[in-house]
Design a protein around this nucleic acid. Sequence first.
DNA 1: TTAAAACATGTAATTAATTACATGTTTTAA
DNA 2: TTAAAACATGTAATTAATTACATGTTTTAA
Lengths: 179, 179
Amino acid sequence: MAQKNTLQFIILGLLSQESMTGYELTQSFAHEIGEFWQAKHSQIYPLLNKMEDQQLISHVDEVTGTKLAKKRYSITQQGDDVLQEWIAEPTDFISSSKDEFILKLYFIKDKNDKRLTSMFNEQIRLHKEWLQHLKSRNEDLFNKRSQQNAQFGHYLILNHAIDREQNYVQWLETQFNNL
Amino acid sequence: MAQKNTLQFIILGLLSQESMTGYELTQSFAHEIGEFWQAKHSQIYPLLNKMEDQQLISHVDEVTGTKLAKKRYSITQQGDDVLQEWIAEPTDFISSSKDEFILKLYFIKDKNDKRLTSMFNEQIRLHKEWLQHLKSRNEDLFNKRSQQNAQFGHYLILNHAIDREQNYVQWLETQFNNL
DNA sequence: TTAAAACATGTAATTAATTACATGTTTTAA
DNA sequence: TTAAAACATGTAATTAATTACATGTTTTAA
């Protein structure tokens, strides 16, 4: 891929909420953010350096224990300007959603193909599991309405992830029953 | 990105249904396939050459009019073996879905943020428009049940695209009304 | 107390994908 | 008849992203 470096804006967005280390930023992609964008530490660390050069972010050094060095990054005024600009600009939804399972279905021409049953079963299991995971995340984070309002964006996207997953499972089951 | 070259399998899958030119393959990504994977001609043409070197596909030359040269590609036995292997292997759903709009929401902490209304309105418009497009595609292609069975995979993924889009619009509207 | 898991930060090599450049033919609609 | 749109195939340069390598510290659980 090679677009306009969305990752950069995500990092700015995360840092606009609180200062974080590269490790913590990486962790974000294991949670809700990861439902809507993916990145590994090997992409994040170099990008942090680049962004600091551009003065979009800055860091202070920290030490845990006696030796473990960390860099805690914060967003700068310049960085926030760039972030706000990104949020304000129109979002063309270019459905960059990639779904290998659905693609595989496309290539199965015969409705009675033997492989369909096990393929659907596997996907249903995976997605149900994931849905369950998301739901318990939701209970952990937002069991009180006050928490929903305090972190509105976070609540919204987890809510969307659950909704999406729920619909996916439902679709899989409907189609499975029609086979 | 740098995974296991899914595009290659998609090309094999498309060619397993009928022989196609690079241009026609490219066109596929403007239609249903494009809902679940994206690729441009500049990635497709070089890959076709590579795949022909590996004897996964082969081509015959064609001429339209008096001069317009085309290469019509077909899948080889080897290619079909590779395709079947890909379909058979378990599909880890690593939700590589990227959604900038949802990410932007994450970074809006305040439920009363002025920007939310126009952002939601814009997305609702875009997604409704796209949903409409998908629905008319569906009517054009699959108005008869016989056509659904003849191209089962195609029917399934278009059906899924519509279902997904419908759910997305519904979610947007629900959240919008809650603002 | 010790081993494993989690925390923490990086670089090198490679691949996937995009953007931009490049050129020409055929069909369609005004 | 002519101009625009669609058809058709490619390459070059660059960027985004992954995989693999590399090293060390702190915390947790057995």
